[in-house]
Design a protein around this nucleic acid. Structure first.
Length: 828
DNA sequence: GCGGACTGCTTACCT
DNA sequence: ACAGGTAAGCAGTCCGCG
């Protein structure tokens, strides 16, 4: 596959700065030996850009440098200032902040690119292709060309045929997505600690309680258990398959044995290892007298390292909102091992029915091993989907794998754009310059406190609609960015001659002379997705492995594309550019509004639409095709058939409907019955009605099912009225705390319940989900502390009514007459 | 002192 | 810390009410 088959492929997985050696270290994964190797670069110095020579301490070199300033469309003559260590820049930045506090901005106005991390700067300037194969040359690392992948890239380029100005961008991305990925050797780790009490988790800072058990599972299924002998329990053989179980009477010895084992693996995977397992082991090791030099764990800001390994913390990865919504389609709603495993693997944590303190060895190992297995399986399931996602995201963002898996989407996009700037010798602009030059927005948002107007939501046509087609624009916002050449530099550019180039009735204009970097990057990713990876990810002719890889590529691009517009409307994004973001939604509104108008002119019945989608009732094929051709011609965007519903059930509310696809799958959007805070009792009832709706093909069917749906609601109603529920937990609402209780301005119900829990000694805070029950006297109580007779049944009946009314209304069922009426007759 | 009309806060969802 | 738009429930405030 590779040109030179003898050489070992070295995949660059991470780049870091080593303090002690004062040099850049590259971590290389050798796909033959499955071990990590290192490459040290002592020559590369940290640097920043200045308007004039600087006089701070620690500078080793100052040289003139010319850079293209895209904001002003000119070449700037500047100074590249190299420093002895990156800490010189860090302390300069600290000084800068101090000055600013005193109102002195002289330093800030002189320096640029001083906020870019040293190792990122290295990646950009050396054009390091993270996650791609290299081999060792005489001195340097050399990129390993893969002939097979290059062939596919050529094929793809021929198909998409981009304009000459954009060819390089497309080709670079295609390589990143077509080159092979190694199957990283890896091991997961999970630790169980003796608890002080049953209301709080152990404190890793303190590490005052012994580690009872540590389980590790490798990606090829090797299982290891390290168990501490406890005084009150006899040692005995465990009945656990395929596991190596080792008992220790000395805890320090056990920890050393774990260090020794992990050293064999290039990747270590944890769930919340950054903030719990690894710091606990670290501090426990110190407490037990293991010398610092013998402990491979080290904690840095928001990240815990294991030297000799790359550490991936899946809690951080799955917690990235963009991943949750776009790559995993919001299949998991809360970020914990149990719910993520249940959603993605179909199995969860074990319910042993007791806490670790009272478990037998066998129970303890089984419980702990299960967690370690879930953790590794989250990286191995579906052809190592998650590992491959992380790899592709690292490639696209040009960030180290351990970094990209912890940082949010805005960091990835920023990094991708910065890399392109450095590659082309563009000066990276300062935030203030963009704001100053580009000015403000011109529209008003519907929502108070928002900065500009967003998308259009069409008023739904209430009722049941059979044979409804849903069309949507393929990547609307990325396409707009591509087609209209949008970017921070091109929107409201400095050229007077461009000021007539305006769209969609907005006052902003777009540059006619220069191509926007964002437009090229997002545009090419968009095209690769629409014209290549979408099909390849479904291509049954490919072998399963290859198809899955294409799915990964498709998902990764989707994540980037979906967030690409939003970041420019975020004040904290370094390239924040309000008119750019406003232009995207403005042109979006213009396109969908025109398309709906055209559809109506063609005699099509538009019954709903949101942002980039249009619901059309029973459309003739030829009219639909005409509409598609028209959008392509008018806006150069593909309006595609996305879904065919057997029928949709539209409530009077926006973003709130049920649709049944041809194959019987029931799509539920926005309804209370699917929201995660809804008590289980109501969710169960709601899901049963979903099954009934799946069996409806015609209006006649609907008449039959109407009765059954009525019955389900009635039964739930009766259960409440008679207080005959089996489990009070099924009545609990589950609401998240987004901050710590003392930070709330008002006292919502879940916060009241949380405060009560804290009083009782429970540790709940930001991120915890509070389970509470509505009790009589307009109050709430934590679910685990509520008695059956306290439940405020009327409140629950009210909730039931409002939940089902969203569905009953369009089905033509009247709550008062048909639910209450019948029930009353029945119960007397 | 209590309830209705109102605003604002909070969470969870949709695209 | 990607955006704006929507729904829903409750907290808190103001005002009228002999």
């Amino acid at each position: 596959m590779f040109t030179n088959k003898v050489i070992n492929m070295l995949y660059i997985v991470s780049v870091d700065y080593n303090d002690d050696l004062n040099c850049i270290v590259l971590k290389l994964y050798n796909s033959e030996t499955e071990k990590l190797e290192y490459y040290y670069d002592e020559k590369f110095k940290s640097h920043f850009i200045a308007d004039e020579p600087m006089t701070i301490k620690g500078i080793v070199k100052q040289e003139p440098i010319a850079k293209y300033n895209a904001l002003h469309d000119r070449i700037d003559k500047l100074v590249k200032v190299s420093t002895e260590t990156p800490s010189v820049i860090a302390s300069m930045n600290r000084q800068m902040k101090e000055d600013e506090k005193k109102g002195d901005n002289t330093l800030r106005s002189k320096v640029r690119e001083n906020h870019i991390k040293f190792f990122q700067s290295y990646i950009y300037d050396k054009n390091i292709r993270i996650g791609m194969p290299y081999y060792r040359g005489k001195e340097d690392l050399l990129f390993a060309v893969d002939d097979m992948a290059e062939k596919t890239v050529a094929e793809l380029m021929k198909l998409i045929n981009p304009t000459s100005a954009d060819i390089d961008v497309y080709e670079d991305f295609a390589r990143l997505l077509e080159y092979p990925a190694p199957n990283f050797k890896r091991i997961s780790l999970d630790a169980e600690i003796l608890n002080e009490n049953d209301k709080q988790v152990p404190d890793p800072e303190n590490a005052n309680m012994p580690i009872l058990c540590v389980c590790l599972v490798s990606n090829i299924g090797e299982k290891f258990a390290f168990v501490l002998v406890q005084e009150n329990q006899a040692k005995f053989d465990l009945n656990i398959n395929f596991s190596k179980v080792s008992f220790f009477t000395d805890e320090a010895e056990m920890i050393r044995a774990i260090f020794k084992l992990v050293a064999e693996y290039p990747f270590i995977v944890t769930f919340n290892g950054d903030d719990f397992d690894l710091p606990y082991i670290f501090n426990r090791a110190l407490r037990l007298g293991i010398p610092l030099a013998d402990i491979p764990i080290s904690m840095r800001e928001k990240m815990t390292f294991w030297s000799g390994c790359v550490h991936l913390d899946l809690y951080k990865f799955f917690g990235i909102r963009a991943m949750q919504t776009y790559a995993f389609a919001a299949k998991y709603k809360t970020i914990d091992l149990d719910s993520i495993s249940r959603a993605l693997l179909g199995k969860g944590k074990l319910d042993v029915g007791k806490w670790v303190n009272t478990m037998s060895y066998e129970e303890l190992v089984t419980y702990c091993m299960n967690d370690a297995e879930l953790t590794i399986e989250l990286t191995t399931y579906n052809d190592s989907l998650v590992m491959n996602l992380i790899l592709v995201l690292a490639r696209l963002s040009k960030m180290p794998v351990d970094n990209v898996s912890r940082k949010s989407i805005s960091n990835w996009i920023r990094s991708m754009i910065y890399a392109e700037h450095r590659k082309r010798n563009f000066l990276i602009p300062r935030s203030e310059e963009i704001i100053e030059l580009k000015g403000k927005t011109s529209t008003t948002a519907k929502i108070k406190g928002k900065k500009y107007k967003g998308a259009v939501v069409v008023e739904p046509v209430f009722g049941i609609h059979f044979k409804t087609e849903v069309g949507d624009f393929a990547s609307l916002y990325p396409t707009i960015i591509k087609n209209y050449n949008l970017g921070y530099a091109t929107v409201n550019c400095i050229h007077e001659s461009c000021q007539d180039n305006k769209f969609a009735g907005l006052p902003h204009w777009v540059c006619k002379k220069q191509r926007a970097i964002e437009s090229q990057l997002i545009g090419s990713l968009r095209d690769l997705r629409v014209f290549w990876y979408k099909q390849k990810g479904k291509d049954k002719k490919l072998d399963k492995n290859k198809m899955n890889w294409y799915k990964v590529s498709e998902q990764s691009i989707k994540v980037f594309c979906n967030a690409a517009y939003g970041v420019f409307g975020d004040e904290d994004f370094t390239l924040y550019c309000p008119p750019f973001a406003e232009y995207v939604t403005g042109i979006g509104r213009w396109i969908i509004t025109q398309t709906i108008q055209k559809a109506q002119e063609l005699g099509l019945e538009v019954i709903y639409g949101d942002t980039d989608s249009i619901f059309i009732k029973n459309p003739p094929k030829d009219k639909l095709n005409e509409l598609m051709a028209w959008t392509k011609k008018s806006f150069d965007i593909e309006f595609e058939l996305d879904k065919s519903y057997r029928y949709v059930c539209l409530s009077k509310r926006k973003k709130n409907y049920i649709g049944v696809l041809e194959d019987g799958f029931v799509d539920v959007k926005g309804m209370t019955g699917k929201k995660k805070h809804t008590p289980k009792m109501f969710k169960d009832a709601f899901n049963t009605t979903k099954e009934l709706l799946a069996q409806v093909y015609t209006e006649q069917d609907m008449n039959i099912r109407r009765n059954e749906i009525r019955k389900i609601v009635k039964t739930t109603y009766n259960t409440l009225k008679k207080r005959s529920w089996t489990n009070i937990e099924d009545l609990a609402f589950h609401v998240s705390l987004t901050k710590n209780v003392e930070e709330y301005d008002t006292l919502p119900q879940h916060v009241k319940a949380a405060k009560y829990l804290i009083e009782k000694g429970y540790a709940v805070g930001s991120g915890s989900t509070i389970d509470f029950i509505k009790v009589r006297g307009k109050k709430v109580k934590p679910a685990n502390l509520t008695r059956v007779d306290e439940v405020d049944v009327d409140k629950y009946v009210d909730f039931l009514k409002h939940l089902f009314i969203q569905m009953l209304e369009p089905l033509g069922i009247d709550w008062d007459k048909e639910i209450l009426g019948i029930t009353q007759i029945c119960s007397y």
